[in-house]
Lab assay of single mutants.
Amino acid sequence: SAVVMEEGSPGEVPVLVEPPGLEDVEAALGMDRRTDAYSRSSSVSSQEEKSLHAEELVGRGIPIERVVSSEGGRPSVDLSFQPSQPLSKSSSSPELQTLQDILGDPGDKADVGRLSPEVKARSQSGTLDGESAAWSASGEDSRGQPEGPLPSSSPRSPSGLRPRGYTISDSAPSRRGKRVERDALKSRATASNAEKVPGINPSFVFLQLYHSPFFGDESNKPILLPNESQSFERSVQLLDQIPSYDTHKIAVLYVGEGQSNSELAILSNEHGSYRYTEFLTGLGRLIELKDCQPDKVYLGGLDVCGEDGQFTYCWHDDIMQAVFHIATLMPTKDVDKHRCDKKRHLGNDFVSIVYNDSGEDFKLGTIKGQFNFVHVIVTPLDYECNLVSLQCRKDMEGLVDTSVAKIVSDRNLPFVARQMALHANMASQVHHSRSNPTDIYPSKWIARLRHIKRLRQRICEEAAYSNPSLPLVHPPSHSKAPAQTPAEPTPGYEVGQRKRLISSVEDFTEFV
Rank of each mutant, 00 (worst) to 15 (best):
D410K: 00
P476M: 11
S435M: 10
D334P: 13
N220I: 13
V323P: 02
L413G: 01
I459G: 09
L329S: 06
T332S: 15
I326T: 05
P476G: 15
Y245R: 14
L225R: 10
P294A: 13
V388S: 00
D357S: 01
V388I: 12
D349F: 12
L283S: 00
E218P: 06
V378T: 02
L387M: 09
Q321H: 14
F350H: 04
V255E: 00
Y493E: 15
A421N: 00
Q293P: 13
E288C: 12
G369H: 08
K342G: 05
S219L: 08
G492Q: 14
L286C: 07
H248A: 15
A447R: 09
M420I: 07
L422W: 04
I440D: 11
M330P: 04
S477Y: 09
M320K: 02
C460R: 08
W445K: 08
G496A: 10
F362Y: 13
Y383G: 07
T328A: 02
Y441F: 09
Y245Q: 06
I266C: 04
C314P: 04
T490G: 11
K368I: 06
V297Y: 15
Q370S: 15
H316M: 10
Q419Y: 02
G258W: 15
L225T: 14
G309V: 12
V473G: 15
V495N: 14
W315T: 03
N425A: 11
S409G: 05
E494S: 08
P475N: 14
G492Y: 07
A463I: 12
D361Q: 08
P482F: 09
I407H: 04
H431L: 13
L302K: 13
A424H: 03
Y465I: 13
P468T: 09
L286S: 06
T328L: 00
L286G: 07
Y274C: 07
Q293T: 14
Y465S: 09
V388E: 00
D308C: 06
S268K: 09
Q259P: 02
D303G: 10
V374K: 01
L280T: 04
E397I: 07
T332Y: 08
S260R: 04
R418Q: 04
V297I: 13
L280C: 09
F311N: 04
S268R: 10
Y313N: 03
G272D: 02
D336S: 12
I223S: 08
S244P: 10
G365I: 03
N386V: 02
R418C: 08
E510V: 07
T438Q: 10
Q391W: 05
L399T: 05
V374Q: 01
T332F: 08
G300L: 05
E488L: 08
E360Y: 05
E307C: 09
M420H: 04
C340S: 14
K249Q: 14
G309M: 15
H338Y: 12
V236R: 08
I287G: 14
T281K: 10
L399N: 04
K333D: 10
Q497M: 10
S469V: 11
L329V: 04
R285V: 09
I407Q: 05
D439N: 11
D317N: 02
P437K: 06
V505C: 12
D410I: 00
D334F: 12
V354Y: 02
E384V: 02
H375G: 15
I367T: 04
D401A: 04
S358N: 01
Q429H: 11
A265S: 07
K480Q: 14
H338R: 09
Q310P: 11
N386C: 06
K363G: 06
G301C: 06
N386A: 08
Y355G: 00
E488H: 13
V473N: 15
R450I: 04
G258I: 02
S273A: 02
T438L: 07
D318Y: 05
N348G: 15
H271Y: 15
G284S: 05
V378I: 14
H375D: 15
V323T: 05
L225H: 11
Y493T: 13
E510G: 14
G301L: 05
Y465G: 09
R411G: 10
V495I: 09
V255G: 00
V473H: 15
I407T: 06
P243F: 04
P437L: 06
P414C: 03
Y245D: 05
V297H: 14
V297S: 15
S235Q: 15
V400E: 04
C385H: 05
G365E: 15
E270I: 05
L472T: 14
S466L: 11
T366P: 04
G365C: 09
S443F: 12
K343V: 10
N220A: 15
I446R: 13
Q310C: 13
G300E: 14
Q419R: 01
L470S: 15
Y383Q: 05
Q419M: 15
L238V: 06
H478Y: 09
I250Y: 01
A487E: 13
C340H: 15
A447N: 11
K480T: 15
L239D: 11
V255S: 01
K480R: 11
Y383M: 07
A487R: 10
K368M: 10
